[in-house]
Amino acid sequence: MSILEQICADKRVEVAARKEIQTLGDLQARLPAIEKRPDFVKALRATPMGLIAEVKRRSPSAGLIRDPFDPAAIAQGYEANGASAVSCLMDHKYFGGGDDDFCAVRGAVGIPMLYKEFVVDSWQIAHAKTMGASAVLLIVGALTDKELVSFIAEIKALELQPLVEVHDREEMLRAIDAGTDCIGINNRNLKTFVTTLDTTFELAVMAPAGCTLVSESGIKTPEDVVELKLAGAHAILVGESLLREPAPGEAAAHLLSLI
């Protein structure tokens, strides 16, 4: 079993337990009162290179990334230094994230937020809306074609943006066939955790006209950002390289300094 398969198996168990406490019906009953959040794609497209700056404690590949960890302060630093959006990890077992971090960030910044999760159930999509997300991550490698199409429709029905993540040519074709208009190319293979920007360089040429393209993971220098822009990326998602710096917000500004 790959790392991704193990995480998704654990996620199904976690979500089943959460549904016993708060049902999908409970979440749906709250939806009419939820304030609409800022548009995710519009924010990414408003600058020469959109930056989705990530808030996370740890990861399976990197271990503990930042300690002490203040999600609200980190997010405020990102917003003050030009980030277009904030990605917040929802998984606790593998990434140390969860509802508390998301709520702390949501209360601290006004820019759009990405619900960064291993989505395997409609419950999570409704939960994202109630939490104040603007976008929801869908990982093609974790879903069947039927699930992918269904989840994209459910996310859009809630006036949220699906960010559909791929990491190879087959997944890129599946994302395109599903009709997505916002694709994240993950430079980290979630089955092996090997990372290379060549993944974006290879797959960007396949993106449909009008699609918003996000390059994710392994982005460390302003020169990387320039190369990704030339390759066709409209935005980048960066976490670890910012979070390891003393001032993540200032590191975010530096990353965009050549654009």
Rank of each mutant, 00 (worst) to 15 (best):
His167Met: 13
Thr192Ser: 12
Glu202Tyr: 07
Leu143Gln: 03
Glu216Thr: 05
Ala133Glu: 05
Val226Asn: 08
Pro222Arg: 11
Ala209Met: 10
Ile185Ala: 11
Ile155Cys: 06
Ala233His: 01
Gly184His: 01
Ala231His: 10
Pro222Thr: 08
Glu216Arg: 00
Ile183Leu: 02
Ala133Phe: 05
Leu243Glu: 11
Lys129Arg: 08
Glu154Asp: 07
Leu228Asp: 10
Glu147His: 09
Pro246Leu: 00
Ser217Ala: 15
Ala153Ile: 05
Leu242Glu: 09
Thr221Ser: 14
Ile183Asp: 07
Leu163Cys: 14
Thr195Gly: 13
Arg188Met: 06
Pro162Lys: 03
Phe193Tyr: 05
Ala133Trp: 03
Pro208Lys: 08
Val194Trp: 02
Thr130Ile: 15
Ala135Tyr: 08
Val140Phe: 09
Glu147Asp: 10
Ala204Trp: 00
Asn189Lys: 07
Pro162Asp: 11
Val205Glu: 11
Asp177Ile: 01
Gly210Cys: 03
Gly184Trp: 01
Arg169Thr: 14
Gln161Ala: 09
Thr221Asp: 07
Ile139Met: 09
Pro162His: 06
Gly132Leu: 09
Glu202Met: 13
Glu202His: 07
Val226Arg: 08
Pro208Ile: 09
Arg244Val: 14
Ala157Thr: 09
Ser215Gln: 08
Thr199Gly: 08
Ile125Pro: 15
Val164Arg: 03
Thr180Asp: 15
His167Leu: 10
Thr195Ile: 12
Lys191Asn: 15
Ala252Phe: 14
Arg244Tyr: 15
Leu163His: 03
Ala209Asp: 14
Gly218Ala: 12
Lys156Leu: 11
Ser215Phe: 02
Glu250Tyr: 11
Leu242Ser: 09
Thr144Gln: 03
Glu245Trp: 05
Val238Ile: 13
Asp177Lys: 01
Lys129Asp: 02
Val140Gly: 07
Arg188Gly: 09
Phe193Ala: 02
Ala128His: 03
Thr196Met: 00
Asp181Ser: 15
Ser217Gly: 06
Ile183Phe: 02
Asp224His: 12
Leu148Ser: 13
Thr212Glu: 02
Asp145Gly: 14
Leu143Thr: 04
Thr195Glu: 14
Val164Asn: 04
Val205Met: 03
Ala209Gly: 11
Leu143Lys: 08
Thr180Lys: 03
Ile185Arg: 00
Cys182Phe: 15
Pro248Cys: 10
Ala207Glu: 02
Leu160Ile: 12
Ile236His: 09
Arg169Leu: 13
Glu154Leu: 00
Met172Ala: 12
Thr200Lys: 11
Met206Arg: 01
Lys129Thr: 05
Phe201Pro: 02
Ile125Asp: 14
Asp198Tyr: 15
Asp168Arg: 12
Leu213Ser: 09
Val164Gln: 05
Val166Trp: 01
Thr144Met: 06
Leu230Trp: 04
Ala251Ile: 07
Leu158Gly: 08
Glu240Trp: 01
Glu171Cys: 10
Ala252Ile: 07
Glu159Arg: 12
Gln161Arg: 02
Thr221Leu: 13
Lys129Leu: 14
Ser241Ala: 14
Ser134Gln: 08
Glu170Arg: 15
Glu170Ser: 15
Val149Gln: 00
Glu250Asn: 10
Ala175Ile: 05
Leu173Tyr: 11
Phe193Met: 10
Ala233Tyr: 01
Val140Met: 04
Leu163Thr: 01
Ser134Asn: 05
Asp198His: 15
Val166Thr: 03
Gly232Ile: 02
Arg174Ile: 01
Val225Trp: 12
Ala153Met: 03
Gly232Cys: 10
Glu171Pro: 00
Ser150Arg: 11
